[in-house]
């Protein structure tokens, strides 16, 4: 049944453009139904701000069902808020109680510059995928889909890794702003499948090298996996490291043959 949550104090990060210093702005939500999602609570606040002739708070969001990876937000210092295994858009006000103070910040990482308020630029993720996060298979040339059986445990493990939504919570949660969970997830997805073998080591080297241009280094804190809305396992980083190490040998060997 519906209940009301009352007297919430929001401290929201406002920053008018990348060059602005930015500051916290305080708003009080007198009461809101606990059926409302966290982003719906921000909608209500934005409606109020427009009513007061003020600019609405800018934040990224789209599908509001936890799959597009557009929404972000550090809520009380936790990426996507207090609920494990879910995105900000899936967080509901029933996770909060009367008189709570809620601090809302953007992802903070050098590789994700702040655009405005709570919106950041995550294009570095796309650059990594462009460098090798694919299987080269031009349209039209594919053999019959059942030609190569994929053992179920392999398909399942690939799917577990492929569930990544590219939201960037892993980077935001990491004290080093490392993107190893994101890159490891894509490499695990593609490198486990028989279709991904031809480019396996080229892919590992290209993606990791591009990652290193943008992001910090992993020191095995594991915050990424704890913050991941899809609960992607740290194992993907182990596989990435193994393949990258092998790639350095294999690719060098191939080069010397040329």
């Amino acid at each position: 049944m519906t209940h009301l949550v009352s007297n919430l104090t929001l401290k929201v990060w406002r920053q008018n453009g990348p060059a602005d210093k930015g500051k916290f702005e305080t708003h009080v939500i007198e009461s809101i139904t606990d059926e409302a999602s966290f982003l719906e609570m921000l909608d209500v606040l934005n409606e109020r701000l427009i009513g007061e002739n003020k600019e609405a708070i800018v934040f990224d969001h789209d599908c509001r069902e936890g799959i597009c990876g557009t929404c972000s937000l550090m809520i009380n210092g936790q990426a996507h808020g207090p609920q494990r295994g879910s995105t900000t858009c899936q967080l509901h006000m029933r996770s909060f109680k009367d008189d709570d103070t809620i601090v809302i910040e953007p992802w903070r990482a050098n590789a994700f510059p702040i655009i405005k308020d709570l919106m950041v630029d995550r294009a570095a993720f796309d650059r990594i995928v462009e460098s090798g996060g694919f299987i080269t298979s031009p349209t039209g040339g594919a053999p019959d889909a059942n030609l190569i059986p994929v053992p179920k445990p392999v398909a399942d493990a690939a799917m577990d890794a492929a569930a990544c939504i590219g939201c960037g919570a892993c980077v935001a949660a990491c004290p080093n702003s490392a993107a190893n969970l994101f890159v490891g997830a894509k490499l695990t997805h593609l490198n486990l499948l028989p279709q991904g073998q031809a480019e396996r080591y080229k892919r590992a080297e290209a993606m990791v090298d591009t990652m290193d241009e943008h992001f910090g280094s992993c020191t095995n804190h594991g915050e990424c996996s704890a913050a991941c809305p899809k609960e992607i396992s740290l194992d993907v980083i182990a596989l990435m490291n193994k393949d990258y190490r092998s790639a350095k040998f294999k690719n060098r060997k191939q080069l010397s043959r040329k």
């Binding site: 040339g141 594919a142 889909a145 059942n146 059986p149 179920k152 398909a155 690939a158 279709q195």
Partner: peptide
């Protein structure tokens, strides 16, 4: 053709125990 294309690209479709 779509299914062939997407499997070649590495879409991890559900499979049975024989891998099909």
């Amino acid at each position: 053709n779509i299914i062939d294309q997407m499997v070649a690209q590495g879409v991890p479709f559900a499979r049975d125990y024989g891998g099909l």
